[in-house]
Each structure stands twice: as structure tokens, then as C-alpha cells.
Computed example of a mutant assay.
Amino acid sequence: MRIICEGPYDLRLSWRMLSAFSGRSASRDGSLAMWWEGRPTAIFLRQTSMDPPVVEIIADPLPGKARRFQQHLRMVLNADLALEPFYRRLRRDRTLRPIVNSLIGLKPLRPPDIFQMLVIAISEQQISMTAANRVRERLLSSFGTPAGKLTAFPRPEDIAPRGVDELRACGLSQRKAEYLSELANKVVTGEIDFDSWEDMSDDELLGMLRSHRGIGEWTAEYMLVRGLGRTDVVPASDLGVRRVVGHYLAGGSDPAAQEVRELLAPWAPWRGLTAFYLLAHYRMIQMGLDQAQ
């Protein structure tokens, strides 16, 4: 199976950004564990051509509903995101031009399912990336399912029966364990329907997400830009976003959330994608990926 992507596309560069923050559900060699048709599935990805960008896919076990499976992976890979209009806009700016030129083909890859993104967002609330990664590693070890050498992320039905104390044992706070338990149960009972989210506007999604306990402004915005590929949404209160926007666009200052929104306003409808590129450049070029926090 193969996917022809909208170019430019550099899977290796994009994968480095994903695998740094995905724990054992993704590896650095282009392999990924996910659930498909009720089975933990190991996915192996390799880019075989840059022009046009072609990604070859091997799945173990072989997936059912192959066309839908391929479409799902197009979503994970952000294969249909057109970068050239975004690049043309940012190259007009003297500061952003070299950042874009150093990251050609970088696309923000999406987690393979929305519940995993919910867990990612809740685990990262008000703690460091390192601490959040430890929590997710423990969740994987406790409730994940082996898929080859990787581990498929726990599903809502894997989390819903667990008590709050079991979730706290993975490093979650009392409140976060309660939030995660409640959200998992809402997914299992159908109160939360992920399939309906794709057709909702950004504002509708943000309002709906904030109606659930444990999801505030930052979590909702983070869900949209990283989990749903909404490239104009910015988690403006995020400390990392504030740091890089201040570093590149505000003379090294520490802007508040509203100032971040104002500084990124000229780059609509790619404000979230612009912030992603600033983060990627700061982490991958200046700090080095292995030291990114």
C-alpha cells in the first residue's frame, strides 16, 4: 500500500517531531502502533520518493477495509496539507523566511486517534513535557496492548473500567485521573462522538470541548491544532508557544496570550502552523531534538 502526498513532504523530518513526544506508541524508525478494526496493529512507514512524495505502508496484521485504512493514515500523515501557499506567505517575512527554508516538507503529524490526543493534552496540563511523557509511558505499560515491538495506546474501553486510584498510580493527579475516567466513560457510552467533530467549525469545537470537565481553553486549542489538524488554531497560553513567539517575533520578550494572538494574526489562516514551525525550529535546530522539553 502506498500514499501519494501533497508536496513538499519530508516524512523523516516530520516523524522526528512526532516520535520525540509519543513514547512507545511510536518509534524513531517510522513505525507506529494503533488500533484498527479492534486489533492492535503495527504500521511501518517509509518514504520512497520526494517528488512526488510517496509513502509506502506495511501493516501487521493486514488491515481490513483497506481504502478506509489508507484514508485514515492520510489523516495521520497530514498527507493532504498543502504547504506551498503557507511557504509563500511566510517567505515575505525576513525573520520567518530562513525558518521555513530550513524545515521544507515538515508537516504536523496527528495521533492515530482522538482519544489518544485527549490523553496527551490532559497529561500535559501544567507539567513539563518530560513529566507528561513519564505518565503516558506508565499508561502504556499498565493499559496498552502489544503490537509487535511497540504498544498500542489504551482505548477508551481500556480506561473506562479503571478506578481513579489505578490511574493515579500512573502518575496522574487526582483531578486529572477523574477527568480521564469521565471522558473515557463518555466516549464508551456515546455521549462524546468523535465522528461528528470533523464537520464542526473551530469555534463550535472549542465551545463543545470546554463544556467537558477538565478541558479548558489551552486543552481545547491544543486538541484542535494537534489532534484535528486545525492549522489556524493557536494554544496561545502555552508556555512553549509564548517562548518561541517572543523569541522570533517580539525581540525576545515574554508575551501574554493575547499578545501572542496579535503577533500571529498576520499569518492567518495558518497561525497554528506558524507556531508549530517556530516550535520545531527552536527545538530541532537550536536546542537539538533530544534536549527538547
Rank of each mutant, 00 (worst) to 15 (best):
M1Q: 08
R2D: 15
R2T: 14
I3V: 14
I3M: 07
C5V: 13
E6D: 13
L11P: 01
L11Q: 05
L11M: 11
S14H: 04
M17I: 11
S25E: 04
S27T: 06
A33T: 01
W35S: 03
G38C: 05
G38P: 09
P40V: 02
P40H: 00
T48A: 10
T48I: 09
D51G: 06
D51A: 12
P53S: 15
V55E: 00
V55R: 01
I58L: 12
A59E: 05
A59Y: 08
A59R: 05
P61G: 02
P63N: 09
K65G: 13
R67Q: 14
F69R: 10
Q70G: 05
M75P: 06
M75C: 15
L81M: 13
L83K: 02
P85Y: 02
T95F: 07
P98W: 11
N101D: 15
S102N: 14
L103Y: 05
L103K: 10
K107T: 04
P108T: 08
I114Y: 13
I114R: 10
I120K: 14
A121V: 15
S123F: 00
E124Q: 15
I127P: 02
M129H: 11
E137G: 14
L140P: 01
L140A: 01
S141F: 06
S142H: 06
S142Y: 00
G144T: 12
G144K: 03
A152Q: 00
F153Q: 01
R155E: 07
R162S: 09
R162K: 12
G163E: 15
D165W: 01
D165I: 12
L167V: 00
G171F: 07
S173M: 10
K176V: 10
L180D: 00
S181P: 14
K186R: 14
V187A: 07
T189L: 05
D193E: 13
D195V: 09
D195E: 14
S196N: 04
E198T: 12
D199F: 04
M200G: 06
S201L: 02
D203Y: 04
D203H: 02
L205C: 03
L205T: 02
M208N: 01
R210I: 07
H212A: 03
R213E: 09
R213V: 03
I215E: 13
L224Y: 08
V225N: 00
V225S: 06
G229H: 02
T231Y: 12
V233Q: 10
P235L: 02
L239D: 08
L239N: 12
G240V: 09
V241L: 05
R243N: 06
L249A: 05
G251I: 04
S253M: 03
S253K: 06
A257Y: 14
V260H: 05
E262T: 07
W267Y: 15
P269C: 11
P269L: 09
G272H: 00
G272L: 01
L273I: 11
L273Q: 07
T274H: 00
T274S: 04
A275D: 09
Y282W: 15
R283N: 09
Q286F: 05
M287V: 15
G288F: 00
D290K: 09
Q291N: 11
